[in-house]
């Protein structure tokens, strides 16, 4: 149970980072932390105590395996996270070229 709570704390750290930090790069890192916390939580759901890797060989029974499905889903989620991070870093670089700063308080041409 403790691991789940630690996971949620990690998630909250990420949210805090996105909300409070003023640097674009730090915000992107915060999003990364949120994604990792989500992925970690997903992987933990599939974990079974004393479980072995979910590879089915001929002489072994399907017993005490960890759940392989969350692992497959986490792989997909990691790829999606990579795409988002790459896109956002690219946008951040372009913003730096236009505004000359990473500080979000100075990037305010829009009214919001």
């Amino acid at each position: 149970m403790l691991t789940y709570f630690l996971c949620f704390i990690l998630f909250s750290i990420g949210v805090y980072c996105v909300l409070r930090k003023r640097n674009l790069i730090k915000i992107i890192i915060g999003l990364g932390i949120i994604e990792y916390a989500g992925n970690l939580f997903f992987a933990l759901i599939g974990y079974r105590t004393e479980g072995r890797s979910p590879i089915l060989t001929q002489d072994q029974a399907i017993k005490n395996m960890v759940d392989p499905l969350p692992q497959a889903l986490v792989l997909t989620a990691i790829v999606i996270g990579l795409a988002v991070t790459a896109l956002m870093v690219a946008i951040a670089i372009r913003i730096y070229e236009k505004y000359g700063t990473f500080d979000i308080t100075k990037i305010n041409k829009l009214k919001g």
Partner: peptide, 12 residues
């Protein structure tokens, strides 16, 4: 400049 800013906000 504005488009990048809006896109970043939207993406976050």
């Amino acid at each position: 400049a504005e488009e990048l800013e809006a896109s970043f906000k939207y993406a976050v």
